[in-house]
C-alpha cells in the first residue's frame, strides 16, 4: 500500500532547486528539475550530509559537502565520492500540489 503525503505547492520549489521535507521520523528531499518533480532520501549515501543545501543542475543533485552527484530521477550515483545509489520515491502532482508517495506498513 502507498499513501500520498502532501509536501508543498509546486510553486514553492523553483526549477533546478531542492526542498527538504521531514515526515514522521524520516527526512527526504524533493526536487524540481526541467523534467518534473522527484524525491529521494534526504541524506547523501557517502556521509551523513543532508542534500537540502545541494545544488540542482538539470536532473542532478550535487551534495554540498564533497560534491558527489546523483541523478534524482533514478537515484543513480554518478561520480566519486558517491558510489551507492540514493533511494528515490514517486511523486505525484495534483492541482498544483506536490505529494510524496510512501509505502505504508502492512496491517497485520
Amino acid at each position: 500500500m502507498t499513501k500520498e503525503v502532501y509536501v508543498c505547492e509546486t510553486a514553492d520549489i523553483d526549477e533546478e532547486d531542492v526542498k527538504r521535507f521531514d515526515y514522521e521520523d524520516q527526512t527526504y528531499c524533493v526536487y524540481h528539475t526541467p523534467d518534473g518533480f522527484f524525491a529521494s532520501d534526504g541524506y547523501c549515501t557517502h556521509e551523513e550530509q543532508h542534500l537540502e543545501d545541494g545544488i540542482v543542475i538539470d536532473n542532478v543533485i550535487e551534495c554540498p559537502l564533497h560534491q558527489g552527484r546523483f541523478d534524482v530521477r533514478s537515484g543513480k550515483a554518478l561520480s566519486a565520492p558517491v558510489c551507492v545509489d540514493l533511494k528515490t520515491y514517486p511523486v505525484v502532482i495534483k492541482d498544483g500540489r506536490v505529494y510524496l508517495c510512501l509505502e505504508t506498513e502492512p496491517v497485520t
Binding site: 521520523d25 527526512t27 534526504g42 556521509e47 551523513e48 550530509q49 554540498p64 559537502l65
Partner: peptide, 11 residues
C-alpha cells in the same frame, strides 16, 4: 534514513 544531526566541519 532517520533524521539526525551531523557536524562535518563547514558553515
Amino acid at each position: 534514513m532517520t533524521v539526525e544531526t551531523f557536524a562535518a566541519t563547514g558553515a
